[in-house]
Write a protein that binds this DNA or RNA. Structure first.
Length: 819
DNA sequence: AGCACGCCGACT
DNA sequence: GTCGGCGTGCTC
């Protein structure tokens, strides 16, 4: 009988040596080795055991090397089916990532195994030999013939904290000891480490004072106040490090235990399916989509519906039809935490055949969902970005809600866009991709315009509510009029009127966090993070300065360390400061603030929204978070405090993001009978983006923007590949990029003369230094084709293998969201 | 990455 | 003489 062979992708490979390796299949494993199962194989000179995935049967026919043998098969059934394997291969070649990067994105974490390395005496070692050798190698005292293998961790402990590596190495060489590895399933529930004081307050404080440790004293007083706190929060509040807390647990000052993390409430009552009636407009677009869904070919469409036009009902009807046709559907949402209302609707409608995939689930829960999906039991899958990989059986429909959202692009390897993956899957599995948005991504609309897929419009709000009346409030000159406030006179009056009518309002701050910077007016000093090239911002909750990139925090200073001035200035309109200001402006009104600070604990987001919906506050104040999928009957006024903030970022998508944001926020006003009002405060009332957003005129915005993209040669007109280098030594990082640029240019002059495009850079990344690592990049503006893949593949493999680039890692990102 | 092999300095 | 430094090249 012919010797069986297969080709595998190995775990833990870098891009430089990530390729298929051929292995023999021992006869006893013959039936068990099929494409998609994970196996253990010996790899490298040292034949260390590694995990691998069988990608296909057979081998490289021209192979002249000797093959090794598969050791073990880990799965009874493939974890990746044929579609998934070919999708992974496609992602590797287009996104320049390793096969295992893809596998990690596609499979639930609960499936991964933890490798435990153990040592044991070899069979041929006698007790006499062991005793004799123990004189020279004391580590042998821990072993006996009867005892099973000892895990490295245990052995380290037995040897007093340090593993005697030389001894072990020598003993392995002499075939006295051998290493074995086992892979244990880890399915631990997601838990959070909690702390409280481990002794009475006075004793703990005395201990901390004796050690003259201010951090410990802080920890003790914070815990005395709060009683109990998670380790994450404790670190946030006090700036303590893990090691400090661990030491305090060890000496008894703190107690520690594990607690289950919050989970989304399991299915809200499996109520009877609500029959809903589609409006005329909804029915019209549904009628156009149904044939696409049932065509049996790959299809796509853009559902372009203004905010409040009832896209969700159309989705529901489509999913219903998909299920009737015996197929399954995947619904992607940008961020599950922000759309609890949507999830509940789906759960209520499709009940037990729904599976939700998101990060708040425990590892075990996610694994269970994955199994339910793979078995075909769950046929409606609602989830975030990575749910696009869900092993849906007989896939018929993929919906991307709010398809323009940046959250659909992965920030780390594999750097995929869920929209592209959805299209690829649709292509393979003859499914229908529906992109839904009120402000489609420029590239999506471009695709529709160039005839790749149809656009279906929902131009009116469901139930005929009018779009809000939008006012642009010119903020120029308000300071001269005596208003130093962030709330200008126009918005202020509108708010007063709104409250007088007994309504609620939403105020939107156009920035990421509660940014509040500290500066010294006399010398210009500003606190900078010691490990990142950004300044630190003030957080009132813990009264500390924080770095938003690495999370480091330091206590607030009263004096400038540079010049000694005691008049430090607190700058910027963070949500926190605005809250204070609003409270003074409207003392009798209740304000809910929603930002990274107030929603740091899981579930607090939903609680805040609930409180607002139940009328417990008059003003909802927040950042990006208030823009998503909220639907409140009594909100008639929306104020955008600082519309300009995101307008002038230097990257090419800044205008698009601003337009989308403003349009979404404006759409939050008046979703029922009453016509709402939106007020956009700006210092640039003439800017086209502001004007177009105020008019809610997407097409006009699109025309201007696509023209800009054409001028700038940016996506979707041209494509960008950004090569980033990261390393601790700045000049090494730059040198590596200069070398790579030269190499590419010489290739483009020679073997790749048919693929010659300008290379820009090296340029510093937006934040040059993060956690003491410098990042620079090259930008190549070139089309996506075989030649590009070949060129970049070669470059990245060379760079990864080269010794000259030690300490510098390099990766490519295709059409990144931010440059 | 992680490991073995190989070729030069300061030790028993 | 040898133990061990880390530069180099390979991984089916």
């Amino acid at each position: 009988m012919k010797q069986e062979v297969c080709r595998v992708a190995i775990s833990g490979a870098t891009y430089a040596f990530d390729k298929l390796y051929d292995y023999d299949i021992p006869p006893e494993l013959a039936g068990a080795v099929v494409p998609g199962v994970r196996v253990l194989i010996p790899f490298g000179r040292g034949d260390r055991t590694r995990e691998a995935i069988v990608v296909r049967m057979g081998c490289d026919p021209r192979a002249q090397y000797e093959r090794k043998c598969i050791l073990e098969v880990l799965d009874a059934e493939p974890v990746l089916d044929e579609h998934a394997l070919s999708l992974a291969a496609h992602l590797c070649s287009t996104l320049f990532c390793t096969f295992y990067d893809c596998a990690r994105a596609m499979l639930p974490a609960g499936l991964w195994f933890r490798k435990t390395e153990r040592y044991e005496l070899t069979k041929s070692t006698t007790e006499a030999m062991r005793q004799e050798l123990a004189a020279t190698y004391p580590v042998l005292q821990n072993f006996s013939k009867r005892k099973r293998a000892i895990a490295v961790k245990k052995l380290t402990e037995l040897c007093g904290g340090a593993l005697p590596e030389q001894q072990i190495h020598a003993l392995v060489q002499q075939h006295i000891l051998q290493q074995t590895s086992t892979f244990d399933r880890r399915m631990n529930d997601k838990t959070v480490t909690m702390h409280r004081l481990g002794m009475p307050y006075d004793d703990a404080m005395a201990m901390a004072e004796r050690g003259r440790s201010s951090v410990r004293m802080d920890i003790v007083s914070v815990l005395a106040q709060e009683g109990r706190m998670s380790r994450t929060d404790l670190k946030y509040m006090t700036g303590a490090s893990d090691s400090t807390i661990r030491a305090m647990v060890k000496n008894g000052m703190l107690a520690q235990w594990e607690e289950q993390t919050f989970r989304l409430p399991e299915q809200p009552e499996l109520s009877e399916r609500k029959e809903f009636v589609l409006s005329q407009a909804q029915q019209t677009v549904y009628n156009r989509m149904e044939p696409l869904l049932l065509s049996g070919h790959p299809e796509a469409a853009l559902l372009f519906g203004v905010t409040g036009s009832g896209k969700t009902q159309v989705y529901m009807r489509l999913i219903d039809r998909t299920l009737q046709a015996g197929k399954s559907a995947i619904v992607l949402v940008p961020e599950i935490g922000l759309t609890p209302q949507l999830i509940c609707k789906f759960m209520a409608q499709f009940g037990s055949c729904t599976a939700v995939l998101h990060s708040a689930l425990s590892v075990g829960e996610r694994y269970d969902s994955w199994k339910r999906i793979r078995s075909g039991e769950a046929r409606v899958i609602v989830g975030t970005r990575s749910a696009v990989f869900a092993p849906a059986q007989n896939l018929g429909l993929i919906i991307l809600d709010e398809e323009q959202d940046d959250a659909y692009k992965s920030e780390n390897s594999p750097r995929y866009h869920a929209r592209d993956v959805a299209k690829y899957r649709a292509m393979q599995e003859n499914a229908f991709v529906l992109l839904g948005s009120a402000t489609p991504a420029i590239e999506t609309f471009y695709g529709a315009e160039t005839g790749k897929y149809p656009v279906l419009h929902l131009r009116e709000r469901y139930s005929g509510a009018a779009l809000p009346r939008v006012t642009i409030a010119d903020m120029r000159g308000t300071i001269q009029q005596g208003y130093i406030s962030a709330i200008g006179p126009v918005l202020r009056q509108a708010m007063q009127r709104c409250f007088a009518e007994g309504h609620q309002c939403i105020l939107f701050l156009n920035r990421r966090g509660a940014a509040k910077q500290v500066t010294c007016p006399s010398c210009g000093w500003t606190p900078a993070c010691p490990s990142c090239s950004v300044s630190m911002t003030y957080h009132s909750v813990n009264h500390r300065l924080m770095c938003h990139y690495c999370g480091k925090s330091i206590p607030v200073r009263r004096t400038c360390p540079n010049c000694g001035s005691t008049h430090l200035k607190w700058e910027g309109t963070g949500t926190q400061r605005l809250e204070t200001e609003l409270q003074q402006m409207f003392p009798e009104r209740k304000i809910l603030r929603m930002d990274a600070d107030t929603t740091s604990t899981k579930g607090s987001h939903a609680k805040l929204l609930e409180a607002f919906a139940e009328d417990q506050a008059d003003i909802l104040l927040g950042t990006q978070m208030v823009t998503k999928g909220l639907d409140f009957d009594r909100v008639t006024l929306v104020g955008i405090v600082d519309a300009d903030q995101s307008l002038f970022a230097q990257d090419y998508r800044a205008r698009e993001r601003t337009f989308s944001l403003l349009t979404q926020v404006v759409g939050r006003a008046g979703r029922r009978q009453t016509q709402g009002q939106a007020i956009i405060q700006t210092y640039h009332p003439q800017d086209e983006v502001i004007l177009d957003a105020a008019r809610q005129d997407y097409e006009r915005f699109y025309e201007a923007e696509i023209e800009r993209r054409r001028m700038l040669q940016c996506p979707p007109i041209a494509q960008l590949v950004v090569l980033t280098a990261v390393g601790e030594r700045e000049r090494d990082v730059l040198a590596a990029l200069v070398a790579v640029k030269q190499r590419m240019e010489s290739l483009m002059a020679g073997a790749f003369s048919d693929f010659c495009y300008p290379i820009l850079g090296p340029a510093p990344a937006t934040v040059v230094r993060v956690q003491n690592r410098y990042r620079y990049h090259l930008t190549i503006r070139c089309p996506d084709n075989k030649r590009r893949r070949a060129l970049l593949d070669g470059i990245l493999r060379e760079a990864g293998a080269s010794r000259n680039f030690r300490g510098v890692t390099m990766y490519a990102d295709v059409n990144p969201m931010q440059i």
